[in-house]
């Protein structure tokens, strides 16, 4: 019997998930519920967050912070990457600085942001941007560098203005790289945001996680964590759809199922 590869993949993923859930459920019979709450409790809490507006609002608040951070890092990263790409001489000034930034843990930025700035939202935005900026810059720079010299000269032969060159050649060239950068940084940002919310946020997934810890509520902690994971999965899927539409010019081999 031959199965459609997609369906087989789905069945395999479902099987391993079921095994994990079953193991958890068995653990819940032997350990106290504040350590291993039953699966149905977690599911109920997860769904409750999604259908209770004040709770859903907090998820959206965190989503907004992720989005603002990524958008800020993307704009700043592009503003850095394109001049570096055009004038390679400035690279040796900026790159070491970005590499240095990349090494600083998110928690250090939390401390720095609390000492430097007032205003919770500003602190969070700062942390989100500064932690995702280096990756965005390097990824946009890489895709800029992959620009074809042939297409560049062909376009230049029509003598375009700087803005037209940007629009007709540079944007389409770096677009695939930008979409990949968004997909990668989305996961990073979702992990950083809960740490960033420790700067004194009075709402959001990070704040709720902290509260569940104080209440010793494992089902709650897991339910809030699942919200973030779901958010990343949903947005990633949206990016894939955008990608498939924007990059529809790419040939696809019939061998690639």
């Amino acid at each position: 019997m031959t199965l459609n590869p997609r369906l087989r993949q789905f069945l395999q993923a479902t099987a391993s998930t079921l095994v994990l859930l079953a193991a958890w459920q068995i653990a819940s019979y032997f350990f106290p519920h504040y350590l291993f709450p039953p699966v149905q409790d977690i599911v109920v809490r997860t769904v409750r967050i999604l259908v209770t507006w004040p709770e859903l609002k907090q998820v959206l608040e965190t989503a907004m912070r992720i989005f603002v951070g990524l958008a800020g890092a993307f704009v700043l990263g592009s503003l850095l990457a394109i001049p570096i790409g055009r004038y390679p001489k400035i690279e040796s000034y900026i790159t070491p600085f970005l590499v240095f930034l990349q090494g600083i843990p998110a928690l250090s930025w939390v401390i720095i942001a609390i000492i430097w700035f007032h205003g919770t939202e500003f602190r969070i935005a700062f942390i989100m941007i500064i932690t995702t900026l280096p990756a965005f810059t390097f990824q946009v720079l890489d895709s800029y560098r992959s620009m074809s010299k042939d297409l560049f000269e062909m376009t230049m032969s029509f003598r375009p203005s700087g803005w037209t060159l940007f629009r007709v050649l540079i944007v389409p060239t770096i677009l695939p790289g930008i979409l990949t950068a968004w997909k990668i940084n989305l996961g990073n940002a979702a992990r950083v945001v809960v740490v960033a919310e420790l700067v004194g946020a009075t709402g959001g997934v990070g704040y709720e996680l902290l509260r569940q810890q104080q209440l010793f509520d494992m089902a709650g902690a897991l339910a809030w964590t699942i919200q973030l994971v779901l958010f990343v999965l949903v947005v990633q899927q949206i990016i894939v759809w955008i990608e498939n539409w924007l990059l529809r010019y790419r040939p696809v081999s019939e061998r690639a199922a």
Binding site: D150, T155, F158, P160, T164, V168, L169, P172, Y249
Partner: peptide, 23 residues
């Protein structure tokens, strides 16, 4: 050019339009 140097993300029509668009 020696090789066609078409923009892969543009259709045949849009590739021909390119020069006019830049002008």
């Amino acid at each position: 050019f020696q090789n066609d140097r078409l923009m892969p993300w543009r259709t045949a029509l849009d590739n021909v339009v390119l020069g006019l668009e830049i002008l």
